[in-house]
Design a protein around this nucleic acid. Sequence first.
DNA 1: AACGTTCCCGCAAACGTTTGCATAGTTTTT
DNA 2: AAAAACTATGCAAACGTTTGCGGGAACGTT
Lengths: 341, 341
Amino acid sequence: MAKNHTVTLKELSKKLNISVSTVSRALNDHPDISPITVDRVKRLANELNYVPNLFAKGFRTKKTNILGVIVPNVSHIYTTTILKGILDEAELSGYRVIISESKNDETKQVEMLQTMIQFGADGILMSLAKKTSSVNKILSMLQRVPLVLFDKVSDKIPCTQIVIDEEEAAYNAVQHLIGLGKERIAILKETENSYNSEKRFAGYKRALEANNIPLKEKLILSTEDISLINGKRLTNVLLSMKKRPDAIFAITDNAAIGAIQTLNKFSIKIPEEIAVVGFSNSASATIITPSLTTVDQPGERLGRTATTYLIKEIQNPIEDLVTKTIEIKTNLVVRASTFKG
Amino acid sequence: MAKNHTVTLKELSKKLNISVSTVSRALNDHPDISPITVDRVKRLANELNYVPNLFAKGFRTKKTNILGVIVPNVSHIYTTTILKGILDEAELSGYRVIISESKNDETKQVEMLQTMIQFGADGILMSLAKKTSSVNKILSMLQRVPLVLFDKVSDKIPCTQIVIDEEEAAYNAVQHLIGLGKERIAILKETENSYNSEKRFAGYKRALEANNIPLKEKLILSTEDISLINGKRLTNVLLSMKKRPDAIFAITDNAAIGAIQTLNKFSIKIPEEIAVVGFSNSASATIITPSLTTVDQPGERLGRTATTYLIKEIQNPIEDLVTKTIEIKTNLVVRASTFKG
DNA sequence: AACGTTCCCGCAAACGTTTGCATAGTTTTT
DNA sequence: AAAAACTATGCAAACGTTTGCGGGAACGTT
């Protein structure tokens, strides 16, 4: 404890009277080394509490065992569950994780990507910033280091991408509403044609179609920022219509909660008059009254599989880059906002 | 783009016909180098897009420019705001951040600490796992690398610690209740004498004392895990008393929300009959009806200051380790659960 | 004119590890 | 018994950077 010096290969070699290279190879289970030597080396290394200098190692081998993660916002609740999955899975395979935020800023996103590569990350996990339009720079990075996209992805970037099966999730949600006898189902979506919004909208349309319910333009409301306040605002719009909807499918829990709050304000019965379903299964979904039926997204699992794929690609690099999408199934959590028990 | 080779100091030196060491010094603004040379070097470096090999650098200087962060749980909402502060501040000073979870497990916590040090983190930011009892190993790590504790801290560990001024926050919260004319104020706290719980309890007691309100043992309820469900349970206990409290101070938003839910269930008027205040200003505080008065903890600021202190200590190491606590002020957000507007 | 300073710069070692190549000793093949 | 092949090990270079030391040139001081 007192002598604060670090044990190196050279030291081990001296103590054992063998060369540094033999020690190195023994520690790395190189086939050339005899079992007895391997044993002696490992035993001493253990005893002396040898820890390899990862910098010398990384410097030499150009491998760092670091995974870079770039997300728009670390404090987004769904993101954190994904992060948890990433951290866990990475740890299992002996990787460290460095995390940074793009803050939904495209230039910052590229910057982070660059510094992470410069820093020597063995691979990158990224969830794209909103409105990521110029993918050129990202593409040029791609040939330097394996990249796996998750959650917010883009088919303009040829790499493996892990997403929630948004379309089916939305389909199931709407199907659930239809099963309750609802027919005038409004949707609260995003104006920006983000990947997620588009997919959920597609699921909505497919469910209606499958039940021969005509699409009504008036019931399709869009907003720039699909937040709680805008959920309120759009619900007010819906309530001002002569023929009100009998259900609302909000693309986001926040918007759904906004909807519930304004419905409550006007004492409209949920779900009898208007049922509501959200998307995310956020913590607030059980806080609001009535509690919110919503799509549960297995963020942790998403994080895990994204990491698994990335590590696989790091360990045996693939030659031809091609978009490969893995979809993770969700399930609908039914609560009071659609079900009177 | 095509030639995928990395520019090194040697290359620059060759192109400029000067030695490698001069190039290195020029890039690092060493005073020995003439301004003209510095300019030439920097110009070329820029042109050739030179990026230093951080591994060679870290290997040589033993500095990695990495900060390690260890928290019990990344997906805890308050934690994420702290993380945001850390990430931002670290980036400003050119540090990368690696994050991992202790999952409130003491052995895992030590493990993570070790690997981070082994990995070469220049400093560590840590929020302690619950019931961290044996601090010996942590202490022995301490002399290897600067450590700053935040949020969950312990005075058994001599280092700088950044916390919310819990005591004052609680004092203000209770003072607020007293200001409304409340006198029988119950507190929902933790059984485990965690730092946070103790401090908040102390603030509670001080406020009562300052107003000459005698402490009533019956109104002090403790639970192992201060969660939403337990908030409900304890509130039921309170309601079963012959002389009910006229206010509840819950040490946690979750517990406060549980309290509100059971009060609502029994149609007890909030705040007229019983007022409620929580602690954290979580997202759910505005979702519940009535909205919850709660203590806002400036997590981002806490993260920033913790990082600032750590970096300061990295850059000029302090000799004598001593516990030094920095407290960050909070403010009370008054909402409907204590105020009838 | 001799000396002391100051200013720039280069040489070379060092950090801890990996790895191609050489080599000594041993076993197998011819 | 000589040649070939294999086994286990060592030598030394290499990775890219920083830095102590030394020294030549230019300048200023007597």
